[in-house]
Design a binder for these strands. Structure first.
Lengths: 223, 223
DNA sequence: CGAAGTATTGAGACGTCTCAAAATTAGTGG
DNA sequence: CCACTAATTTTGAGACGTCTCAATACTTCG
């Protein structure tokens, strides 16, 4: 499921808060930890729980028969995912790094939603947020160049990942590539290009610590 | 907005029916006709109405600054579109051919949804259907070849457009291309290839009347 | 320090795009 | 209903962007 809490901050916070209330009162809820790379649920599996990331990061993806992978969304701290209205999940979800989630029984939530309009509307708001993200991503996947995709990705992560100046990306180049509909080499080349242009810098001894030096020029590449 | 009523037939029919009920009783509703090519609403415009296609076909798309276009969905007879939960539309909607729509005031529907759980859940179901379509389309746009995209398109239209053996596509090659993230030439070449292979035939004196001769082999190209 | 995993860079291949022309179909007015 | 024009579709040929395959470099972890 595509979750993008930060995008619709005002009402989304409500939705999140509401689910929080529910959990504290009526609905079974617990924490769970997944190791780096562990599968949280598989596509077409029964959707028994919904999840909120407490720590770490998660990728949701679909596979084609021959292994081609499309990541539909990254779920970062605070994000809720796994919310399906049908009985089955539509993505596979995996922990990108060691990850702690809070989970609640889907049926319980469903049950409350059937009588409580506020909860039903909160679900609607969350689903709409996911839809909006998917709609924007279709434009990216269908019509943007590799450089534009990478720029959009960096700005999305900058917005969602941190208030700090340094972005610590949890995902690999391959994950980024499968999110953007590219190969990892093309992603790497785009990042190198942006680095050479002085638009971003790599921090410390890792290629996943990125600092955006020139958000303006990056935004010009976004659209 | 992405509408794909046929995909979730059972509950979706409910949703559709429900909206129908509402309209007949409490909510202002009327019909409207749009000429081929006419804009129904623009992106970022205030979402005052939601629409149902009574006759014709509609495309919903986003544009980049330089004219690149991504069509997010086609709305066919029976489909509901323009349903946004925010105040503004997220796509531009245009009539592909002369089109008749039924429309209702968004605020009225919103109002009812705020007190009636059934309506709120119907909106959730419709939004979820749109989300599911968008999720599948991301996989197509990010990871499928041109031939796979065209095959998927033909099967989608076959499913949604008709029970008859002949498919009368309302949209141009350019529309198809902008839906599939390709150029119109590439779409044309893929169709020619499928024709040459005996998988589809063109009927009558138009290239938009297509008959699927071998759904099985087409499905092998889908995934 | 060594080994495994990950990222970068290079060079050539390939699929789709671009540009252009020809063919077909649709639209219009007589 | 035909003739003419405009629009759309098909087809071709070459260009271009991204992918593939391969080698090197870097980072992490034991």
């Amino acid at each position: 499921m595509l979750v993008n809490i930060n995008a619709v901050s005002a009402k989304r916070q409500n939705a999140l808060g509401e689910l929080g209330e529910l959990s504290r009162s009526r609905i079974f809820l617990s924490e769970f930890k997944y190791n780096r790379g562990a599968e949280i649920y598989g596509e077409t599996e029964t959707a028994d729980y919904i999840y909120q990331v407490l720590e770490g990061a998660v990728r949701s993806y679909k596979l084609l028969f021959d292994g081609r992978r499309q990541i539909g969304a990254f779920h970062l701290v605070g994000d809720i995912f796994g919310l399906e209205n049908g009985a089955a999940h539509r993505f596979t979800a995996e922990a990108i790094v060691d990850t702690t989630v809070r989970l609640m029984k889907r049926r319980s939530l469903e049950h409350v939603a059937e009588t409580d309009v506020v909860v039903a509307l909160d679900l609607l708001i969350m689903t709409t947020g996911n839809l909006q993200h998917a709609e924007d991503h279709m434009l990216l996947l269908g019509r943007k160049t590799s450089l534009e995709r990478v720029a959009a990705f960096l700005l999305e992560m900058d917005r969602r990942l941190t208030a700090k100046s340094v972005m610590a990306l949890p995902m690999s180049r391959r994950d980024i590539a499968d999110y953007l509909g590219l190969t990892l080499e093309t992603v790497s080349r785009a990042l190198s290009y942006l680095h050479a242009k002085g638009i971003l810098g790599f921090l410390g001894p890792t290629q996943r610590q990125i600092v955006l030096l020139d958000r303006l020029r990056l935004a010009e590449l976004d659209l």
